[in-house]
Amino acid sequence: MTGRPASPATEAPPLLDIENLTVGFHTGTEDASMPLQGVNLRVPHASRMSLVGESGSGKSLTASAVIGMLPEGAEILRGSIRLGGEDLIGAPKRRLRDLRGRQIAIMFQNPRASLNPVLTVGGQIAEVIRTHSDAGRRESHRRAVDLLDQMGVPDARRRAGDYVHQYSGGMAQRAALAMALSCQPDLLIADEPTTGLDATLQQQVLELVVEQVSDRGASLLLITHDIAIARQTCERTAVMYAGRVMESGPTASVTSSPANPYTTALLRAFATVDEGRMYAIPGTVPTLFGPLAECPFASRCPEAGDVCRDGVPELRAIEDREVACVKA
């Protein structure tokens, strides 16, 4: 679980570089729950990357590790996380808090719940601005109103003084985006940002996210279940399974000619859901206690053979992408 493919010479040094990230719960013992098993993921500057995978594969946990906010009891056992070359795992708490919002911002699922019910929407955005700059009260409020306006909240000046319960779902999402982008982060992580919105609103919000992130020259890491969303918003896609990245590369080629049998199975499951029929990948996601000893997909993989059980397949560069499969 140590080696990793050398990046192709043409690729710029990445903005976010996650190497061999291993996270366990209830530290110490080797057979404790280990939901992340050596995640390798790179997000280049000014790019959009999606992270897809079944529920429980470790997408949100990876994001929490990046912002330094793992749930209670979780610990990084191995690996590194670098942002623009700076090591985040060893960074002091103060430094991490300073980076949050200013260099990395995150939007969680359910924007309504992620805004405080008893503070005004504009006031919350203004506070984030004041935290990361020396703008005063008046100036930060002016910028908050501007941001809401840029995100397409009508009558932004008045709406800034409203509370989140007065916002519709779509408007709350726009406000959450305004808050996340308020301090010009280099990286926006959006964890299932449109779950719960209807199709039209989902479309509008995604377009807005892409537009705003691109305009600012920032990068996007979009976590989603929905491969259609990945196709339409991100040039690169990483597929996660059981705490590992199984395949990553240009979205178009990963989703049209998958090189990892897990990606194939995921695409098939997704396509049949789209047609209204049910197809689930046979078998269940393994519960991860202790380090993996074989390909995590081996128990469900139609192509599995003895070689798959000899060790955990490493991510290897193959043509335009990276694949973790001995048979690829």
Binding site: M69, R100, G101, S114, N116, Q124, V128, H132, M179, A180
Partner: peptide, 22 residues
């Protein structure tokens, strides 16, 4: 433990304000 507190923390809001204001 609520979402809005987690969100505010994730954007760097200092702990004092998290407790007293949020």
């Amino acid at each position: 433990a609520s979402h809005h507190i987690r969100s505010a923390r994730a954007l760097g809001v200092p702990e004092r304000s998290i407790v007293l204001r949020h």
